[in-house]
């Protein structure tokens, strides 16, 4: 058979094939488009529940090569990245906005806040803290407002909004009632309303009886703010 004879037929066949191919591809594209509308802000539903992290593209860019505060760290004992500060060191303070802007007092405040807390966890330490430790922060509305907020975040569950020892956990019978700030008697002697700021600070740092230490949650500046607020509640 002559090759010239077959040429027109084969080109027609090719043309039809190409036409069909385009049709198929466009149908597929439309279908893919319809199936693939995914909302990045889609709501959670229980169908999405899974217990493994799933696939990550280039995990090197997902998981930090350096150890992060929350990651397991084989270098340190206990495999913790975030460890305890070295004994005897003092954390550098990040004074809050209000304090940092108080230019007149900042130097003396820094001196007072940077002194390490040297009173031991004992009755003697408690008494001498009450005697020598003074609140370095000035009393003003901003400090009181912040103190109230911190009190609400940390103390209110047991001590109650008014410091009467009637927080929601106490009322629910889940936790032992602490003595009222205004009418109670301290387990270490004296009325609660006469407690010196230094004694409250000592209790915040070490805890007493059923109250645990809150030194991790509150830095020195925040402790003194809470204490200013507690001083107000003592008078109520």
């Amino acid at each position: 058979m002559n090759t010239n004879d077959t040429n027109p037929i084969s080109t027609m066949a090719d043309f039809h094939a190409a036409e069909n191919f385009i049709r198929i591809i466009s149908t597929i594209s439309i279908l893919v488009f319809c199936f693939s509308c995914v909302d990045p802000a889609r709501e959670y539903s229980p169908d999405l529940k899974h217990s493994t992290p799933g696939i990550e593209y280039m995990p090197d860019m997902y998981r930090s090569g350096a150890y992060e505060p929350n990651t397991v760290n084989p270098v340190f004992a206990g495999k913790q990245s975030a460890g305890q500060p070295v004994k005897g060191t003092i954390a550098r303070l990040n004074l809050s906005n209000e304090m940092a802007m108080n230019k007149e007092r900042i130097d003396t405040m820094l001196d007072e806040l940077l002194v390490p807390f040297s009173y031991p966890d004992s009755k003697e330490g408690y008494d001498s803290a009450g005697k020598y430790l003074k609140n370095p922060l000035p009393l003003n509305d901003a400090v009181l407002a912040e103190g109230k907020r911190l009190f609400g975040n940390n103390c209110i569950y047991c001590h109650g909004a008014e410091g009467k020892g009637d927080g929601n956990l106490v009322q629910a019978g889940k936790y032992a009632p602490p003595p009222s700030y205004s009418t109670g008697v301290s387990s270490r002697g004296g009325a609660m309303k006469d407690l010196a700021p230094g004694k409250i600070y000592h209790t915040l740092v070490y805890g007493v009886n059923m109250m645990g230490s809150h030194a991790a949650q509150l830095n020195p500046e925040e402790r003194w703010k809470v204490i200013w607020y507690v001083r107000q509640l003592q008078q109520k």
Partner: peptide, 28 residues
């Protein structure tokens, strides 16, 4: 075959969008 292919590529497209998205991750 065409329907399966379209459906499959839709699924694959979905699946690829899920890469690195861990919504619903609930480990023990």
């Amino acid at each position: 075959i065409i329907i399966l292919f379209a459906f499959g590529s839709g699924k694959a497209w979905y699946w690829m969008l899920e890469i690195g998205v861990e919504q619903g991750y609930e480990p023990a």
